[in-house]
Design a protein around this nucleic acid. Structure first.
Lengths: 210, 210
DNA sequence: GATTATGTGTAACTTTGGTTACAAAGGTTC
DNA sequence: GAACCTTTGTAACCAAAGTTACACATAATC
């Protein structure tokens, strides 16, 4: 584990902290689609993402979903911090968008390290800032953009985090992420295809205009 | 200033920290409508809200606004933290919803106190958590609710933070906060009035169904 | 290879919200 | 009180997105 740690967090944390993380953290590997956290869960450990992509979702009382943002390597989930510090239930759902490797750190260490390590404080604050910025971007998207723009943005974002311009997904899945209906997505996808921005195939979409 | 400090933050911070804040902080009083921070501003001091209400707005590239949330007594602006820590420009606009009293603390102290005071660390983390929760609520509202529900929620929220069920505002102003047009708001307000939930008057709305 | 399940395309229609246009009421200024 | 500005009410129309319904293609299962 220390190898992954040094590789992805070595430039962030001092040697001593890396050693501590190595001692108390546990390594975890999850497959694509794995639900790391659900709404209502209590959290007892904080994930440091080493590899892969995690998608963070929100759900309303009808069970309708909305994709909030993606977490990538080097990120941690500020919503988890939210839970840990406040001892509250999770307000979001976290699902592995791709196979992912994580290091889980017990919550108790948080406060300890906050006092001890300057780099940890910075990391936590940075994480909060990143998450706030991402939430702002999400708000901009749903408040100010029309569905066709949101759709194209979503396809590009998805291509980005997966480092692949061919997305294996269905219209239904996209509709759920954007909180709209499958018919609307099919309609708009066809429009984007006619505009030459994407190429449609069964279970996959080739994003041309990245 | 130490009086206001003890009154509103005494139960949060230890005596020593209160003294430090009293020494380096500056007291500030602003009238209703005063813009405390604009998009693009660089921030060099952190506000602790002692009295009054601050509204936090987001703007898109066309100058269209959207109300994100209200800050109340005892709150601080996590977006400011965002700026301070990251040395970035402000991504939001902050306007006094009512006359407000604030204590401004120089950014440099942040990191210092984070190390020194357990209560300060908690305060900062708590603030981030509150802001994240509020952003989530905002997302829920615009993603999952229809305009008439959003409108009623907005009226209730506004009545709440102002502790007054009679709102002095115009349809135009509400439309800006909710990022829609005046005509739509007039239409929906009239509907709410017919449903007996509000009572309309020129420049004021009486929220009956709180 | 017949049956079933999943995914996609499309038409027709409805609802919600945005736009334009204009009238009228209530204030303000001179 | 005449001229002006701000605010509100409302009609008529338009556009975006949600809904229902169904055909058809592809893949999976037996």
């Amino acid at each position: 584990m220390i190898k992954e740690l040094k590789q992805h967090y070595g430039f962030l944390f001092e040697e001593e902290l890396l050693q501590e993380i190595n001692q108390v953290g546990t390594f975890r590997e999850v497959p694509e689609g794995f639900m790391l956290m659900d709404i209502g869960d209590y959290i007892k450990s904080m994930p440091l993402l080493v590899n892969g992509v995690i998608k963070i979702l929100r759900e309303d009382e009808n069970g309708d979903e909305l994709l909030l943002y993606f977490l990538e390597r080097g990120d941690t989930c500020a919503m988890t911090l939210n839970c840990c510090v406040g001892q509250k239930k999770s307000e979001i759902r976290a699902i592995a968008e791709s196979p992912a490797k994580l290091i889980m750190v017990p919550v108790e260490k948080m406060e300890d390290w906050m006092q001890k390590y300057h780099s940890w404080r910075n990391f936590i604050l940075q994480s909060y800032n990143s998450r706030l910025s991402e939430m702002l971007e999400t708000i901009d998207t749903i408040a100010f953009m029309k569905m066709d723009e949101r759709l194209l943005k979503h396809l590009r974002d998805k291509a980005m985090v997966n480092s692949d311009d061919i997305l294996s997904t269905t219209h239904q899945e996209i509709a759920q992420n954007l909180h709209t209906s499958r018919v609307v997505i099919s309609r708009l996808l066809k429009k984007l295809e006619n505009e030459g921005k994407i190429k449609l195939n069964r279970n996959s979409i080739h994003v041309i205009d990245l």
